[in-house]
Structure formats: structure tokens, C-alpha cells
Design a protein around this nucleic acid. Structure first.
Lengths: 252, 252
DNA sequence: AGAAAGAACTGTACAGTACAGTTTACGATA
DNA sequence: TATCGTAAACTGTACTGTACAGTTCTTTCT
């Protein structure tokens, strides 16, 4: 993910004068944003210097300061820029709820996608970064919180409401139910990702949390219990009782 | 962390000058630790200077460096020192599970205590601090993670097992159930506390999350209506170890 | 004499600026 | 169409001022 700039080299045919005018500065600005994004996510806010950013963007420091008033503003702009992209994901989530056919299977699949997105390295780094700077940039953190995690929750709530409308679920508190869905599936995974940056989360872990989370969720919100779908009943007493000893922290 | 002179002074009458000296150092050391703890929690690791710490402890900088080799070590010692105190809290939790009489009411009360402890300002600051420095101090973060949040989960698991033994709950996956209990109650509260440092969490919010969380939890694990238990992940047999990431990541 | 204070010092890193010279875009002119 | 002029944008380097980790030295305390 390094020298892969957008380079959409503005090639040829009809280029409006407005585009031309914006061109030179814009190219530089994009290079700065790209370099700064990578560096901030990698090394944090205080760990990244303006000299480094200028060098990585192959741009002079003065150019950086011409585009961004100071380091704080550059940082804010970048975080907010990344945050905006979260909306697409949230919307995508919601749509998938509406296309559900097999309730349990499709919910698990949605949960897997959701979790996979949220624990992906860049998203986790962003989250860590925002949390780290939440005291210094409270407004920024609040915006991120509202537009990324909370927006995801809102999408889940809407998605669930469509399932309620189709009579597949019986939910009285949509927002609470959405939180429960999200935290049952994502909670442990996010914490692990935040605290153990060197430990990679496997797709097996994601699938496990998605599966148990969704099954538990369905237990809470399907009314007839197994009214609609073959509620997976793996033969008999599959899992052995987990050790009650002191070492709970073994598998995850 | 173990640079502490043992010197368990048991005799009181004959006080050697060596003991005097040791006591004096200890007093200074404690002052340093206390000041540094406050400052690190308040202003973060890079935001706190050694000069500040020395001044706040009313001690010379040289004394700080005599007790702690460098800033990193001071930081680690302090985080680990605070972390140790979490054990007591976890143990207290476990005991309360064993004393439960009214299942729902007492569980809610436990959940309220649990959440109140976890979202208390200092605990949240500590969590934010460890997350912020997780990349720089991976070993430290791993230790904190194992000894604070994970230890809490272990205590919940043990507490739940006592309820199972008393036939009040039907749980087959204790660890999973403990996570569900914890994240149902704490998840949204912790995130809010992490991202919105200026917004205070009210006891009303805590009570609400504790109540809905516990009720949902009980719906999943009381064998009143549906005697089924959550299944332990059937499909994960092969458990593909492939790390997750890549395509979905880019868009956040 | 061992421990601490206190202040000065070293060396480095960094945010932000100043400046002198160079490149780029683009319209005007030949 | 080719050439030139100009202003804005850019570069590289050097500089200012500050902050900070860690050290050294002299003096003071107990």
C-alpha cells in the first residue's frame, strides 16, 4: 500500500478550466493527504512529524503549510476525510438486511462482513488513533464516534426493523437490539484488536463470534423460538464444558 | 518494577542508617509514582515530561532517574502497578455472584457495580492510555489486557458457574456466556466513555444498560421456556488461520 | 558519607517561518 | 504556431524558538 498513488493522471481530452486551475495544488494536496494518512495511522499523531509528511509526500514543507494551516488542522481534516467513507459501509450493511432469505445463515454472513470490516488493520488503527487523541481533539472524536460506530448501529437498527416488518423478528427496542447485535459480535474482537496490535485476528475467530453472537441474538428475539428456520441443533452435546479454572484467556 | 528493595524492616528498635536511607528512598519513590500516575492518566505518555513529574513529586530529576532507569520503565511500572489493583475488583465480583438470592435483581445490581467501576474516570483514562500506547508498548498492553479486562471476564465466568451449579442458569459455554454478559452491559458504556471524554456517564445510563443487558442475558440462559443452549461453533472445525483484512478495510 | 536538591548543560527533535532561487501554467504578442 | 512575460506555486535549505530526555556538577541536608 505504498507508492500506489491515485495518479489518475488527468490525461487528455476535455478538461475544464476549473479542473485545470485546481490541478497543481490539488495533486500536491492529495499527495500530502495520502502520505499523512499512512503516517498518522502507522505512527500516531505525536509520532509523526511534519518533515516526515512532507518528505513522504515528496513535497516541500512550505507546500504542506500552504494547504493546511497547522498540524492539528491537517490531522483533523484527515480523520474526518476517512470517517466520511464509513457511510458507504453502513448503507451497504442495511441493504443486506433487507435481502435476507435464510434468517440465521444470512445474519451470520452479515455479521462476518461487519466484523471483518471493523477489525481490519486500518480501521483498528484509526479507532486507536481517535481514542488516543480524544482528550486533545474532543470534537473530532465526537464526530468520528457519531459517523462511524454510531452510524453502523443506526444501519443495523434499520436493518432489523425491516426484519420486524417482515415478521421474522419480534423486537420492541430497536436501538437496544442493534447495540446488542453489534456488541455481541464485535465487542470481544475489537478489544482484542485494540489491545493486542501484534496478534492478528483470524477469520476463524470472526466466524465463531459471528455465529455464537447471532445465535444468541436470535434466541432473544425470535418469538416462536424456532418458528421460522431450522434452528441449528448440532448433534447432542457437542462442546465440552469449558474449563472453569483460572485460565479463561486461552482461546481468544 | 522489581527494583523495589525488599528490606522488610521487622525490627523497630535498632534503626540502622541503611534503613533510614531505604525509607527515605521509598518515600521519594512513592511520591514519584503518585505524581507520575496522576500526570500520565491526565495528559498521556508523550504529553507528560520528566521535569513535570519531578516537579509534581517535589523531587529532583536526578532522584527520578535514580529510581527509574528511563521514562519508558517508569511508565511501564506505573501501568503495571495500577493494573494489579484490578485483581481485587475482579475477585470482589466473583463473590457477589455466589451470594445471589434474587437472580434478576441481584444480577442487575452486580452489573451496575461492574459497569460503575469500569467507566469510572481513572479506569477509562487508563484504558485509553494503554490503547494509545499499545503499539509502542505491546507487552505492556498485553499484560494489562490479560490482568484487567480478561480477569474480569474470568471472574464473571466463575460467578456464572456457581449459578449453574445452583441450577439457576443453564449455560454450556461459560466463557462465551461471560463475554456476552460483560459486553451486553459494558460495551456501549465503555465506547461512549472512550470516545466522548467530556460527556459524563450518568448512573441512569448505567442502570439502563445493566437492566436491559441482564434481562436479555437471562432470556438467553434461563431454561424456563426454551431449554436450548448456545451451540459452540460447529463450522469452525478447520478454522482457517488466514488473517483478515484487505479489501473491506480500505474504505473505512 | 550517602542521598538529595538544584541548576546548568548536552544533544536532539520538532513546529513553524524566511528567503532565495526554480518551475509551471497561461495568456499575450509576434 | 512559436516565443515570451509574468504571477503563482513550488523547492531546498537554513533558521528561530521551544521542548524534552538524560547527564553532570556543585551545594546542601541528615
Amino acid at each position: 500500500m505504498q507508492s500506489q498513488p491515485i495518479t489518475t493522471s488527468k490525461a487528455k481530452a476535455p478538461v475544464t478550466s476549473a479542473q485545470m486551475a485546481a490541478n497543481r495544488s490539488d495533486v500536491k494536496r492529495r499527495a500530502i493527504v495520502e502520505a499523512a494518512t499512512r503516517l498518522f495511522l502507522e505512527k500516531g499523531y505525536p509520532g509523526t512529524s511534519m518533515d516526515e509528511i512532507a518528505a513522504a509526500a515528496e513535497v516541500s514543507k512550505v507546500t504542506v503549510y500552504k494547504q493546511f494551516h497547522d498540524k492539528d488542522q491537517l490531522f483533523s481534516d484527515i480523520i474526518l476525510g476517512i470517517t466520511e467513507r464509513a457511510e458507504a459501509i453502513a448503507d451497504g450493511l442495511q441493504i443486506r438486511f433487507e435481502q435476507i432469505e435464510d434468517l440465521e445463515l444470512d445474519l451470520i454472513s452479515i455479521a462476518v462482513s461487519y466484523a471483518t470490516g471493523v477489525v481490519s488493520p486500518d480501521v483498528v488503527r484509526l479507532r486507536r488513533l481517535v481514542i488516543a487523541e480524544a482528550v486533545h481533539f474532543p470534537q473530532l472524536a465526537a464526530t468520528y464516534f457519531a459517523q462511524a460506530p454510531q452510524r453502523g448501529l443506526a444501519a443495523v437498527a434499520k436493518g432489523l426493523s425491516s426484519l420486524v416488518a417482515r415478521d421474522l423478528l419480534a423486537i420492541d427496542g430497536l436501538d437496544i437490539a442493534a447495540m446488542q447485535f453489534a456488541y455481541l459480535v464485535l465487542g470481544p474482537l475489537i478489544d482484542q484488536a485494540l489491545f493486542l496490535p501484534t496478534t492478528e485476528i483470524t477469520s476463524g475467530q470472526i466466524e465463531q463470534h459471528a455465529t455464537t453472537g447471532v445465535k444468541s441474538f436470535l434466541r432473544m428475539y425470535t418469538r416462536g423460538q424456532q418458528g421460522l428456520l431450522p434452528t441449528e441443533m448440532p448433534g447432542g452435546s457437542t462442546s465440552p464444558k469449558s474449563p472453569v479454572g483460572g485460565e479463561v484467556a486461552k482461546s481468544w
